[in-house]
Simulated scan of single mutants.
Amino acid sequence: MKKRKKIPVWKPKKLLVQKKLKIETKQRSVNKKQYDYKWREVSKTFRKNNPFCCDCLKSGEYNSKNLHVDHIIPLVEKPELKYEVSNLQSLCRKHHSMKTFKETLAKKKPT
């Protein structure tokens, strides 16, 4: 039997995926002003010293994934406590989102 020759198969080169353009929104520009270099350094140091989510620890879990540094008293209420360590807590993304949602919902609800 004769050996068959391999026929070259065309394979497309990897396509370059363009990054999505970030749309500059009003909220994004406000956040850029609020969270500056000093805040990033404070946040980084705080996460290093407090490596677990406070809410997860209460339920007995040691969660150190996707940590956010949260202001216990929101910046909207007391902006002077921005860098105050006693006003900070480590929260995972899930708990931080829940807390932020409750805060914004409470702000929108008329009393």
Score class of each variant (00 low, 15 high):
M1P: 04
K2M: 10
K2I: 12
K2N: 13
K3T: 10
I7N: 02
I7V: 15
W10H: 07
W10Y: 08
W10F: 07
K11W: 02
K11M: 09
K13R: 09
K13C: 03
K14E: 10
K14W: 02
L16G: 01
K20S: 11
K22Q: 10
K22P: 02
I23L: 10
E24K: 15
K26D: 08
K26F: 06
Q27K: 11
R28Q: 09
S29E: 10
V30A: 11
V30D: 10
K32N: 13
K32I: 10
Q34M: 14
Y35G: 04
D36M: 02
K38T: 15
R40S: 06
R40D: 03
E41N: 14
S43C: 15
F46S: 01
R47S: 00
K48Q: 06
K48G: 00
N49I: 01
P51T: 04
D55G: 01
C56G: 08
L57V: 00
K58L: 05
K58N: 05
S59L: 06
S59W: 05
G60M: 00
E61A: 07
E61C: 05
E61I: 08
Y62G: 00
Y62D: 00
N63E: 02
N66Q: 11
N66S: 09
L67N: 07
L67D: 01
L67F: 09
H68R: 15
H71D: 01
H71G: 00
I72L: 04
I73D: 10
L75T: 11
L75C: 08
V76Y: 07
K78M: 12
E80M: 07
L81T: 01
L81A: 02
L81V: 08
K82H: 10
K82T: 09
E84T: 10
V85C: 11
S86Q: 09
S86M: 08
N87D: 07
L88N: 03
L88T: 03
S90Y: 07
S90T: 15
S90I: 08
C92M: 03
C92H: 07
R93Y: 09
R93G: 05
R93L: 04
R93N: 11
R93W: 07
K94H: 09
K94A: 05
S97R: 07
M98N: 04
F101C: 02
K102V: 07
L105A: 14
L105V: 14
A106I: 04
K107L: 15
K107F: 14
K108S: 12
K108P: 03
K108Q: 14
K108T: 14
P110V: 05
P110E: 14
T111E: 13
T111P: 07
T111W: 15
